[in-house]
Write a protein that binds this DNA or RNA. Structure first.
Lengths: 251, 251
DNA sequence: CGATGAACGTTTACGCCGTTTACGGTTTAC
DNA sequence: GTAAACCGTAAACGGCGTAAACGTTCATCG
C-alpha cells in the first residue's frame, strides 16, 4: 500500500458528501425540517442512496450540526474583526454578542448544535466536545488575552480534585497544549465562562424567561458583566459594557 | 345556562383524559418515546380516538411536560421537607440540588419541559411561563426568605427600563401579587437566580461540559455559590456549601 | 317513552418518515 | 478484459401524525 493522490472516484465521493451537508443546511435554513428523504429529493436522488455516505439519520444530524457550528463561528470571527487585532477583550465581547444574536435568530440551529441528545458513545462525545469550532474560537481568545494580560488564575492546588484532574487532561474545545501545566487554572476559567455564556443564551433561546427581558438582552448583559472579573477585566468594565450594549442594539 | 355538578359523561371524559397523561408519562418513564399510537395502544384504543381529547401531538407533549414538571416539583418539595420549615435557605439549597439530580437522571423529561420548541402562541407561552410548578416552588421559597431576612434588593430606579417594566407586570411563575411594587426588585433577583440555575443545569444535562466536571458537580457548586450573594446569604456560605456538597453526594 | 343529537371510538386511508434488501449499471484496478 | 468495488434504483416494511366517514352509545327533551 502506498499513498494515493485523490483518485477521480474519491473526489466525486467527497463532493457529493459535501453536497449532502450543504443541501441539509439549506433545508433547515429555509425552515424545513431535516430528513433524509427531503435532502435526497432536493439532490435529485432517492433516499436510500444517502446510506452510501451516511450511516443513519442521527449521523447526518451530527454532521450538519458540526457544519452549522463551523459556519456560525466564521460569523463570530468576522464580527470580531471589526475591532483592532490587539483589542482582545473587545473582540471577546463582540464575539459573545454575535453568538447570542446567532442563537436567537436561528434557534433551530442552536438547538441542533447545543441541545442534541448527546447520548452517544464516549468517543463521539469526546470529538464533539473537543472539536466544536465555536468553542475553540472563544477559548483561544481567552488564551491570547491571558498570555498578554496575565490576569490572576486560580492555583491548581485550590481547585477541587475533580476539576484539577479535568484541567490537566482537558476535554474541551481549546488548544490547551500551549498552556503550561501550572497555568491550567485558565482552563477552569474557560469552563466557567462557557457555562455562563451557554447558560444564559440557552435560557433565552428556549424562551424560559420573560420575552421583554430576552429582547432587551439585560439578563445577558447581567450575566456576562458578572463574568468579566473572571478574566481580570473589571477595570475595563465601563468600556466593555458600552460595547456590549452597542452590539445588542444591532437588531 | 346554569352550573352543572359534573355529569357522568364529564367524569368519564376527565378520567380518560387523565389516563392519557399518566399513560404518556409511564411511556417516557420507561424510556420509550412518546407517540399518539403508543399511548393509544397501551390504553387499548386506536390512535385517532385520542383526537377526541387532544388536538395534536404537540398538545399532548405540552400537556405531559406540564405534568412531568408538576411531579418533579413534588419531589423537590419532599426533599426540602427533610429540613426544618424555618431553614428557608437550606430548603432552597436542597431544592436546587434535587432539581439538578432530577434533570441529570431524567434528561429526556428535562428536555421536554425546558428545551421545548416554544414556538407557540404568546398566549400559550404566557401560561407556560407563569404556571410552571417548579418555577413557583423556587420563587416562593425566595419570597419567603426575603420576607424574613429582608436582604438588600436592587432599587427599581436602578434597574434598566425594560427590566423595571418586566418586574412591575411580571411574566414568571411566582405569586407576585404579594410583593409590593417598591419591592419588585425581588422579581429581578428571582430571574437572575433562575438564569443561573437553569443555565448550568442545562449545560450539564446536554453534556457540553467535561463529563468529570458534570459528575463531580463542581461547576454547579461554583455557579450556585456565586449566586448566593443575590439572596444575601453570604454569611451562611460555609454551611450552605457543606449542605450542597452533601446533597450532591446523594448519587 | 321514544326520538334527537352530541360524544366517542373504529376503520380506512393518505402522506410522511428511517431503514433494509435485492438488484442493475458504472467505474476502477489488476 | 475481467473481476471487484462502488453507487444508484426500486420495492418493501414498519412506524408516525392526521383526516374523513361511519357506526354506536348515551344523556337529554318533547
Amino acid at each position: 500500500m502506498h499513498l494515493h493522490e485523490p483518485t477521480r472516484r474519491e473526489q466525486r465521493r467527497e463532493q457529493t458528501f459535501a453536497e449532502i451537508v450543504t443541501t441539509s443546511r439549506a433545508l433547515i435554513g429555509e425552515g424545513e425540517d431535516l430528513s433524509l428523504r427531503a435532502v435526497a429529493a432536493r439532490m435529485g436522488v432517492t433516499a436510500p442512496a444517502l446510506y452510501r455516505y451516511v450511516a443513519s439519520y442521527q449521523e447526518l444530524v451530527d454532521l450538519v450540526a458540526f457544519e452549522v457550528d463551523r459556519l456560525a463561528t466564521e460569523g463570530f470571527a468576522a464580527a470580531a474583526d471589526a475591532l483592532p487585532a490587539d483589542d482582545l477583550a473587545g473582540r471577546l465581547v463582540v464575539g459573545v454578542c454575535a453568538f447570542r444574536r446567532w442563537a436567537l435568530s436561528a434557534p433551530r440551529e442552536f438547538g441542533m448544535v447545543f441541545a442534541n441528545p448527546v447520548a452517544e458513545s464516549p468517543c463521539t462525545r469526546r470529538e464533539l466536545l473537543t472539536l466544536a469550532s465555536s468553542g475553540i474560537f472563544f477559548t483561544d481568545l481567552i488564551r491570547l488575552l491571558w498570555e498578554r494580560e496575565r490576569f490572576a488564575l486560580p492555583r491548581l492546588e485550590d481547585l477541587p480534585d475533580t476539576v484539577r484532574a479535568a484541567v490537566l487532561d482537558p476535554l474541551i474545545p481549546a488548544k490547551v497544549d500551549d498552556i503550561a501545566a501550572e497555568d491550567r487554572g485558565l482552563v477552569w476559567i474557560m469552563m466557567q465562562g462557557w457555562s455562563r455564556l451557554y447558560g444564559v443564551v440557552a435560557l433565552e433561546v428556549f424562551g424560559h424567561l420573560d420575552p421583554r427581558v430576552v429582547e432587551s438582552g439585560e439578563m445577558f448583559v447581567d450575566v456576562m458583566t458578572s463574568a468579566l472579573p473572571l478574566l481580570g477585566l473589571d477595570h475595563e468594565q465601563e468600556r466593555l459594557d458600552a460595547l456590549m450594549r452597542a452590539e445588542l442594539a444591532r437588531s
